[in-house]
Computed example of a mutant assay.
Amino acid sequence: MTLPRLVASDLDGTLLRSDGTVSERTRAALRAVEDAGVEVVLVTARPPRWLDPLADCVGGHGRVVCLGGAAVWDLAEGAAIEVHGFADDELRALVADVRAAVPGVALALERVSGPVFDPWFPPDETGLPPAVRAVAVEESLDDVAHPAGTVGKLLAVVPGRGLSTRVGDVQRGHRTDAAQDEFFAAVRTAVGDRAHLAFSGAAGLAELLPAGVTKDRALARWCARLGIAAADVWAFGDMPNDLPMLRWAGRGIAVANAHPDVLGCADLVTDGNDDDGVASVLERALAGR
């Protein structure tokens, strides 16, 4: 098995175990492929504030494609080197339209400079300063220090429900319920083609990205900078928001615990995230050189 020039991996449900950790086996496999000259890039829906513990997983370059492709974050500098955020008028209109379409909805803005949450947003986000939750998100839109262009994601939560998990643990049996389906349909109708509605795994959470922002486009820009063709990329994922990236890459690889749609389109299915599926593929490739 010939090694690729670049390995791209989703985090939650793919590279990370269910407890949110990276196993020593996986860390060792990532180091080994980098020592063999392969670039490792993490491509995640996570915001920058959830990336610091993963700095040793991205080798010397220290950069992560985050917010579902809306930003590239430099871990060493603690700053964005690329942002594809919302336009000001566009974001204001989306907030207003989602509010109107889903009465009681809880919203949040994920900015590269830090988040803003409605005060009634479900309390899954622990450890945030009280001021972060002090105002409705609309009141933050006039903050000239944090313009709309720094907002990579608008989050919306089903009214009256908390999130099933803080990150990434979708209904692994892939059950849905009427309330969530109705909620997603209402949000999709309200935003139309003005934003990309993504589902990265937290039940009850709709994630809106700027139109045209997807993981595959962000990864393609990264690879273009490095002079790497799609055919020389292996991409790992588990959720529907990973599908464009897996289809774009020369080899799209799903972990065994992936969503059925991902399993159905993958070129290869490896072991689950709790069984170090990414590491398993990389180890076999290194052994077969």
Rank of each mutant, 00 (worst) to 15 (best):
W73N: 13
R63P: 07
C57E: 14
V40Y: 11
V38C: 13
E39L: 12
G37W: 01
E77R: 15
G69A: 04
A76N: 12
T44E: 04
V72I: 15
A71C: 05
W50Q: 13
D56G: 02
E77D: 12
G37P: 02
L51F: 04
P53V: 11
P48T: 11
R49W: 08
E39P: 00
L42G: 04
G62I: 07
L54Q: 10
V64F: 01
D52Q: 15
R46G: 11
T44M: 03
V58I: 13
T44C: 08
V64L: 06
G69I: 02
E77Q: 14
A70I: 12
D74E: 04
C66W: 00
G59F: 00
G78H: 10
L54C: 08
L67C: 13
L51I: 11
G60M: 10
G62V: 09
G37V: 12
L75W: 07
T44G: 01
L54E: 12
P48F: 00
V64M: 08
E77Y: 00
V72P: 06
V38K: 10
A70L: 01
G78N: 00
L67S: 12
C66L: 03
L42C: 04
G60P: 15
V43H: 02
G78Y: 03
G69R: 03
C57K: 04
L51Q: 08
V38M: 12
D52R: 15
G62E: 07
R49C: 03
V64R: 00
V58H: 01
R49F: 10
V43I: 08
V40S: 10
V58Q: 04
G60C: 09
D74P: 07
C66F: 05
G68P: 10
G59M: 09
C57I: 09
V58R: 06
E39M: 02
R63S: 08
G62L: 11
G78R: 13
L75H: 08
D56Q: 07
